[in-house]
Design a protein around this nucleic acid. Structure first.
Lengths: 208, 208
DNA sequence: GTGATTTTTGACCGACTGGTCAAAGCAACG
DNA sequence: CGTTGCTTTGACCAGTCGGTCAAAAATCAC
């Protein structure tokens, strides 16, 4: 009997190992070819398992994809959650920028998986975006508005500030090939960090 | 005999009309489903033509895609080309930012077509990126370096400045669903323009 | 060790996809 | 009106894909 119909979560050692193998392989393939561009055979080959074995652990190709996306959503939003309303505004925001850039450097596949999904209209996570994500962003935007009102950072549109941080940091993961095509294959992240540091410092520092 | 084997470019009125129909339909479908996620039947339906008729005008699915991409590459780079080394630096760059944002607003499908291609490793346009694009960017970066050396804009990394403009402006087209999920369905572009104006003004204005 | 249970797989299936082709439609021109 | 060449399409094909299944293999409990 297929495993997923009887047990919702992995229990034995071998189940844990294989579901992990599959999700890791799926991340690799989905992130570079998108959902439709990925075949179960590719994932199976990457994971070192047979295709029917994949479908013993997951009921369908789509369920693997959804499992990846929802598992990642949490991790992806953690740095935003971690911004402390009681902290020093400039330091909190700069730390968020650095953290997000570091995630683009360390987990580019995860970033591209999301990028693929969202560029194509986010068919499988739209509800998460309108729920969880929106709530969190609204909350943090309100926090930033307070900082602005208190004159602790320069006046600006909080939502668009958050978008700009996502955009600028994830760009280095999502458009990696383009950046390397232009700069050559040297690591662009050190220069990127300096640049973003400068950009957001100038943007956020009050008065002028 | 299939048309594309005898005539490289459309000649008759009917040929022009149908190749235009096909490219317009293909843009619509490719930009939302990616290359692999798009079927010839979808394009045919969108264009109001039969599948064999598509293949009468283009030798393959890939040739439609390539035709779209290469046709767009020129248009896409024009605003960058238009930056005038003899102009007023701040005005030239701000005008480039506004122009790119306007393109995201007016031609989101084109932006997403590129985004899809690049996120997935740019398999069909990598050589263009390493050639044409790189040459142009290097040239414009050198121009910016001169402006910096002359103290006409604040010191910064010219390549990363260009990346940041691409990133921030195209984000509003490529991640449109995410932005609308967070903000609601109201048009985000007016606020975006104000925000970007402020951001780049602060970033580029010399001295502190 | 042995029987029960979980895990793995080769063979297979129906649906879909990109692409072909021969024949039919159709406009143009004398 | 008839012929010529461009345009369109229904029928078809071979390959691929997601998914099934029965049975074999491996693991586990006693």
């Amino acid at each position: 009997m297929s495993r997923h119909e009887t047990h919702p979560k992995p229990v034995t050692r071998i189940q844990k190992r294989n579901t992990d193998l599959i999700l890791e392989a799926a991340l690799e393939v989905f992130s570079t070819h998108g959902f439709r561009g990925t075949t179960l055979d590719q994932i199976a080959a990457q994971a070192g398992l047979s295709k029917p074995n994949l479908l013993y652990y997951f009921p369908s190709k789509e369920s693997i994809h959804i499992s990846l996306l929802s598992g990642l959503m949490e991790t992806w939003l953690d740095p935003l959650r971690a911004i402390d309303p009681a902290g020093e505004p400039l330091e909190e925001l700069m730390s968020y920028v650095r953290h997000k850039l570091q995630m683009s450097r360390d987990y580019p596949r995860e970033s591209r998986l999301f990028a693929n999904e969202i560029v194509q209209g986010a068919p499988r996570i739209l509800s998460s975006l309108k729920g969880e994500l929106r709530t969190l962003v609204d909350e943090k935007a309100a926090m930033i508005d307070v900082w602005v009102a208190d004159g602790r950072i320069a006046p600006l549109n909080a939502h668009h500030l958050i978008f700009s941080i996502w955009s600028l940091t994830q760009h280095y993961a999502d458009f990696d090939v383009q950046i390397r095509a232009v700069l050559g294959d040297a690591d662009p992240f050190d220069a990127a960090e300096t640049f973003l540091e400068q950009m957001f410092t100038r943007m956020l520092t009050p008065a002028g």
